[in-house]
Design a protein around this nucleic acid. Structure first.
Lengths: 135, 135
DNA sequence: CCTACAATCTCCAGTCACTATAGATTCAAG
DNA sequence: CTTGAATCTATAGTGACTGGAGATTGTAGG
């Protein structure tokens, strides 16, 4: 365990921007790290794993609150599973609804942008189509 | 044209919240309306159409900046068409990319939430799956 | 005319998840 | 020892609203 990371190293290793790490500390997703005598943050490999988890979950679309729950669950491993998969399934439902809406939207936009495919006709239907879209 | 709307009526007619209307005025999507002697905003049917257009475009996912462009184009109808359909097609491309990403995400979430379908097993793969997702 | 109460007014703070800037210090390499 | 990169704190900005406080005004019933 001779592992000691600066904030910049932690940022590089996890694909996170430095201010984002400080932000996560501020909102309590990351704990307050130890500091060097001059005040610089020092991290260990546990922090790398935790931050990597946070970033993965964010990319999967979990909110910081959901991530807080997931991280909390890892501290009570005996009952984690049901609650964790609840969070994941609820989130899956939201993503599926979101996809449905976007597909409707895409079909509308396709219709709108074929009304006038870039010609120089002086009155076309794009604006009208947006105005009268049932969205 | 004996049409005169209060802000509340305009809100009801367009499915917009009152503060949102004032916000649109503040950022210049809606012009500054005439006021009654006591300072209350008065709107006409032109404002209803303009606000309805803004709301439709927002529901279609256009940003307020894009809407500003679209509204600007309506004031130069001779060259509107090409530029308007450019905006729509660019936006369509973004929506299509967004859908692709969400489908990948959905497949991952499905995999994750079937790892442990809510049983009471004490160590399951949900947390690990999130941590090791390639997202 | 008076009393309620609903609607409107302005101004400001909060949301979410960061991102960026300024100005001061500190670290690491040559 | 100097230079430049990295870090520090603190604060403000983003986008697109939403909500609340506290004051004024509009309107309907008695």
């Amino acid at each position: 365990m001779g592992d000691a990371f600066t904030i910049g190293r932690l940022a590089r290793d996890t694909g996170t921007k430095v201010p984002t790490i400080r932000f996560y500390e501020e909102i309590g997703l990351l704990g307050t790290p130890i500091r060097t005598a001059s005040g610089h943050r020092r991290y260990g490999s546990g922090d790398v794993r935790r931050l990597a988890f946070i970033r993965s979950a964010r990319k999967l679309g979990f909110s910081t609150e959901e991530i807080r729950s997931l991280l909390g669950l890892t501290e009570h491993p005996e009952q984690s599973c049901g609650a964790a998969s609840d969070i994941a399934r609820r989130h899956l439902g939201e993503v599926e609804r979101h996809i449905e809406q976007l597909i409707k939207l895409r079909d509308e936009l396709r219709a709108i942008s074929t009304v006038c495919p870039g010609s120089n006709v002086s009155d076309c239907g794009v604006i009208a189509a947006i105005a009268h879209s049932p969205a």
